[in-house]
Design a protein around this nucleic acid. Structure first.
Length: 216
DNA sequence: CACCCGATTATCT
DNA sequence: GATAATCGGGTGT
């Protein structure tokens, strides 16, 4: 009984599955400003404010991994909303996604592209081999490196309070801008990238101007 | 089994 | 602006 009371009145603000089980366009916008938390088996905890995300959606979206159907790599995208889809790319980097509604073209997800570090910054600096705060998690590959995320987290349920990766609500109410998605060659007309307006922690920040990213 | 290429990043000119 | 680093997924033979 005591246990159930503790659960009922838990102070956890972990976002529930219903948050993710919606269109990636809605989830992508609303997740900006939320708190990303990464915990390790030794109790170590890292956190940051999500400041950039992109929507990818099933058979409506030729830029999505799920566009050509289910494969061993993308099968998590075809499963339940609220799970992590982590993939390896360019021989170097991991990218973190959260599965969203299956009603949006069979399989959809949002790519978590950047976060503003809050706690565990020393750990992130060691992971990233830099102390420049705006370089720690200002890109999908950088974010995974800073937060120690790799394929071993692929498929985990991020709505559990004890999950190695989870997202909590926040009092922040950041202004959100949109733009075309970055790094894709098809469906480049859609403005499915969402980011905190003027945040120095988004990709295309200080040192990435060379890539010519425009956010209009 | 060979081939192509990617939801990236760091570093060079 | 251009390219190297580096590897596994996906496709076609």
């Amino acid at each position: 009984m005591t246990k159930s009371i503790i659960v009922e009145f838990s102070l956890s603000d972990v976002l529930p599955r219903s948050f993710y089980d919606r269109s990636p366009l809605i989830v992508g916008r609303e997740i900006i400003g939320k708190k990303l938390i990464r915990t390790f088996e030794n109790g170590k905890e890292l956190s940051g404010t999500i400041v950039e995300a992109e929507a990818y959606g099933g058979n409506r979206d030729p830029a999505s991994h799920s566009f050509r159907g289910k494969t061993r790599r993308n099968e998590v995208m075809f499963g339940e909303a609220g799970h992590a889809y982590v993939y390896f790319t360019y021989g170097f980097h991991y990218c973190l996604n959260f599965v969203t509604s299956s009603k949006f073209g069979k399989a959809s997800a949002i790519l978590i592209r950047a976060a503003e570090p809050l706690t565990g910054i020393n750990f992130m600096e060691r992971q990233r081999k830099t102390t420049l705060i705006t370089q720690l998690a200002s890109g999908p590959g950088k974010l995974c490196q800073a937060f120690g995320i790799d394929k071993s987290q692929n498929g985990i349920d991020i709505t559990r309070t004890d999950s190695a990766i989870r997202v909590e609500s926040s009092d922040l109410n950041l202004r959100v801008s949109t733009s075309k998605r970055i790094g894709i060659r098809v469906a480049i007309d859609r403005r499915w990238r969402f980011f905190s307006t003027s945040s120095p922690h988004v990709s295309g920040g200080p040192s990435s101007k060379v890539r010519g990213i425009r956010e209009s």
